[in-house]
Design a protein around this nucleic acid. Structure first.
Lengths: 77, 77
DNA sequence: TGGGATTTGTTCGTATGTATC
DNA sequence: TGATACATACGAACAAATCCC
């Protein structure tokens, strides 16, 4: 499901929802990296700003852990 | 002409324009290296980010070729 | 064999400006 | 007014390739 510029749900929330589903479905595995900011901006055609906001949401939910210079990783649970 | 932080033309575009002129004027010769990222950041007082964006522009224009660990070189034509 | 220096490649961190809704 | 979104710009850390001694 592509991300839309629709006024109902912000782009960054759509991405956060998408990634959350992939984590819960096990498509993104604990300990392994989530696609990088660059990857996600390219894949979805959105700005880095929106990607980072989405990651911030997941980080606050405890679903990912982020390390400067390395990437974001699916949290162990 | 020094590079300015002016909002009309981004820093990285200014540098791309500058280097393009030097290539077209033959001041930077085919097969020889373009100044390194470190050189360009120092000379112009701009960030590596901006330098790399400028190089990306010239690379897409086919004016330079870049090799990791070696540098960027003026393309043969 | 090894290590150090240089250079580009990749990643996240932060801030600012602009535009839109 | 505030939230959203994009672009620009600077920093910082880490990774990989190349070169030389």
């Amino acid at each position: 499901m592509p991300i839309r510029h629709d006024r109902a749900t912000p782009v960054y929330r759509q991405l956060a929802n998408l990634l959350r589903k992939q984590i819960e479905a096990g498509e993104l595995t604990a300990g392994l990296p989530v696609p990088s900011e660059g990857q996600l901006t390219g894949e979805h055609g959105i700005s880095r700003d929106s990607v980072r906001k989405a990651m911030a949401v997941l980080r606050e939910e405890g679903l990912i852990v982020t390390v400067q210079g390395k990437g974001s990783f699916v949290a162990e649970r």
